[in-house]
Amino acid sequence: MTTLRERKTYRKAILRQLYGAMEHNRPEVSGAALREELRLPDDDLSAACAYLADEGLITVEWTSHKTPATASLSHDGIRFMEEEEEWSGPGQSD
């Protein structure tokens, strides 16, 4: 079973990956690319994306298997990541 700390880590990693992609003019990232780049199991990726979508931070297009086909930051997600960057400084992690 995934711990709360792991779930939060997965969510942050997804947000950072999508924010980085947006900065490189790739507003949408495929679920397969997220899974591969972050090395997340399907269940954990799906749960993290569902949580972030429910919070209004990302938008997700789902496959028929309930896994993300594509994901992108919402306007609120962009603002959230910009605030995080301002607070922690560019290139810094927690």
Rank of each mutant, 00 (worst) to 15 (best):
D54A: 13
K12R: 10
E55N: 01
E83G: 10
E55V: 03
D42R: 11
T3P: 00
K12L: 09
K12G: 02
T9N: 02
D43E: 15
A32F: 05
S74Y: 06
A21C: 03
E84H: 06
E36N: 12
T63M: 06
P27Q: 06
R5H: 09
E61W: 06
S72R: 14
A71S: 11
R16I: 02
Q92H: 15
S46Y: 02
W87A: 09
Y19H: 05
S74C: 04
G89A: 04
E83D: 14
D42A: 10
T63C: 11
T9I: 03
K66Q: 15
P90E: 00
A69C: 00
A71K: 06
K12P: 00
H75F: 10
A69G: 01
D94C: 04
A13K: 15
A47F: 04
P27F: 08
V60I: 14
A21G: 05
K8P: 00
T67Q: 14
W62R: 01
T59F: 15
S30R: 05
L73G: 04
V29I: 13
R35M: 07
S64L: 07
A13I: 04
L34M: 04
P90Q: 07
A47D: 14
D42L: 08
L4K: 12
L18W: 00
Q92D: 13
P41F: 12
S30I: 04
E28K: 11
L57M: 07
I14C: 02
L73R: 01
S74E: 06
L52K: 11
L73F: 00
R16W: 12
T67R: 15
T2S: 05
L52C: 10
R7W: 07
A48N: 07
M1E: 08
P68H: 12
L40W: 13
A21V: 05
Y51H: 14
V60Y: 15
G20M: 03
G31K: 06
A32K: 13
T63Q: 09
R16V: 04
Q17K: 15
N25W: 11
T59N: 15
S88N: 11
R11H: 09
R26A: 10
E83W: 14
S74Q: 01
T70L: 11
F80K: 11
Y51K: 12
E85Q: 12
A71N: 03
L4S: 14
G31Y: 07
S72N: 07
M22I: 12
T59I: 10
A13Q: 15
R16M: 11
T9D: 06
